[in-house]
Design a binder for these strands. Structure first.
Lengths: 336, 336
DNA sequence: CTGAAAGCGCTTACAG
DNA sequence: CTGAAAGCGCTTACAG
């Protein structure tokens, strides 16, 4: 491994001068710069980032922890974060928590923290108390639907408004028994809380009953969960005429069950998802969904972190609200 | 930030003793260990990995570079690599190349290399010459279908055999005009080369013509590419009665086009994919596919890298062949 | 079983 | 505009 010292020796200058050239320091004579550059090229020198970072106290790495890479939403989001980070010369360390509290805690408490400058976390089970107990000092940016009483930056679309527009769309199509798939647990802060609230609010505003029998809990948010939830719903007393799913993977699982039971989408039951993953666009029946602006989410999260890292941000926690829109496809609108 | 020195001071011992305790060194008296541990707990000390790694010359990070995180195969694979790496206390830096040669070169040539101990790369456009020209000394493990004349570890299933079993399956079902979707470029080393060869070999073995009109090139391997390729095929002179796609996303795009044109799967055209992503299992018509053992691929790649990093591996490049199997679903077999 | 010193490769004040 | 020195936090021989 060739170091600054080797280059300095070769060029017959001090280490400092080489460092100046490497870092593009202004006041170096062209002749000197060229001489040093030649030595660099000849030796194939490349700076050791580990050493640089030890000295500067920063690593140039930010970590991104999502629940599940198998959910295309998070895979697509991760890609966007990697690109946004590259704009600021940051590299992304990726981790997945499985949505399990112990892993989320580990990540949040700074597991491997010395290796990264900051963390972007999309939590599922973490509670406000967990965040408040955090001792790790590096900046943390939260992503996603859960709301916390804790002083951290938080990037999330307006989930209530988005859910309401999805339900509104179904009501406008004449649907009256609109189920919600993917609720979880009792806590007022549960993951699906805001989307469920949007569902309830919009039904109420339309003068329709928000029937609890139409709310189906799931263990997780995968396709299998959606398939099972839909089956449970169909086995129940009153069949719904529409389904609003927590996310696209749940919706796709639900559509699988509908197809297996020989029910038509949207004629018998209309389906709306949430996330706008590409899979939904290519589904057997293309899926109507809420499309969050993933690029904006990624950009805002990275910008937030970078600002805090360069000390430019206020101490106030920032709340950013990227945009979203309803994308209507055949799962609600029928063939053109 | 609290350092070893702070802990040593607090405990009234030397830095070395603290280091011994932190690293679980054997020969420390229990009393001393307890005393130091108390100081560690009181101060909330955590080792600075950057410093440790500078000293040891290793970072504990391995990089994984895949073409596209938006392709669920790579997202699922990345998840498996992260888990396999965690078993060895390694963390994963994730990058995507977009399958573009310049980005692949950058990654392979050691962009940010000082930050990672080794690289797992799934190349698309890279050539053997690029690999031979690599100056970076850290270990590199290659993943995926492309074959290289270069001395690097390579993990890949037997693509020819897998492709043959897919085509065999279609022939056994009585199909005679079996198209291949997702060829690319002319080079004998092109990405789809092996699967295409498998297609050709199996047809020939069955005494069927391997008609070039049935081979459709695509720009990439996404759903959109598959949809366009299928449309081109249907617009051609002779309609096929089956399609073998380069991968599942291409197959899913093809199925979208078939549905749009009102063709029945598998009655009119049977479809087989490659990768066994979960999306295929939940597709409008569940997709028959080749299922590579992703966990084995991830484990073998990480093991390979870790072995080289600990100096235990022979200098011989290793070629590992994880298993695969054909998973038959409705896109070829029809409803049960 | 524990301590004092050197050094991993870099950058940051401080001189000149 | 360039150099010599100190130090980021750790581990690794080397003494004792």
């Amino acid at each position: 491994m060739v170091s600054l010292k080797d280059v300095a020796q070769r060029a017959g200058v001090s280490i400092k001068t080489v460092s100046n050239v490497v870092n593009g320091y202004q006041h170096v004579t062209p002749a000197m710069r060229e001489r040093v550059q030649r030595a660099i090229d000849e030796l194939g020198y490349r700076p050791n980032l580990t050493a640089r970072h030890l000295r500067k106290g920063r690593t140039g790495i930010i970590a991104l922890a999502v629940p599940e890479l198998g959910n295309p939403y998070f895979a697509e989001l991760a890609g966007a974060v990697i690109d946004a980070a590259a704009q600021h010369d940051y590299t992304v360390l990726l981790d997945h928590t499985g949505g399990r509290r112990d892993k989320e805690l580990l990540v949040c408490q700074g597991f491997r923290s010395h290796v990264m400058d900051g963390l972007i976390l999309s939590p599922i089970e973490l509670e406000s108390a967990d965040l408040l107990a955090r001792t790790e000092s590096s900046p943390l940016v939260l992503l996603g639907e859960r709301e916390y009483d804790a002083p951290f930056d938080h990037i999330a679309i307006d989930n209530v408004a988005a859910a309401r527009s999805a339900v509104r769309h179904l009501i406008d199509l004449g649907r009256r028994r609109i189920a919600f798939l993917g609720a979880r647990r009792e806590s007022a802060r549960e993951p699906a809380h805001l989307r469920l609230r949007g569902w309830r609010e919009e039904l109420t505003a339309a003068g329709l009953p928000a029937d609890d029998a139409l709310v189906v809990a799931t263990d997780g948010y995968g396709r299998e969960d959606g398939a099972r939830a839909m089956a449970a719903l169909l086995d129940g007393a009153d069949r719904p005429d529409a389904v609003f799913a927590y996310n696209d993977t749940v919706a796709i699982g639900a559509m699988r069950t509908l197809a297996d039971r020989g029910l038509r989408i949207p004629e018998d039951i209309a389906v709306v998802g949430f996330d706008d993953i590409e899979e939904g666009r290519f589904a057997g029946v293309p899926l109507t969904t809420i499309s969050p602006d993933k690029e904006a989410i990624a950009r805002l999260a990275v910008d937030c972190l970078v600002e805090r890292l360069s000390g430019g941000a206020s101490t106030e926690p920032r709340r950013a609200r990227p945009g979203h829109r309803l994308v209507v496809r055949e799962s609600t609108a029928g063939r053109a």
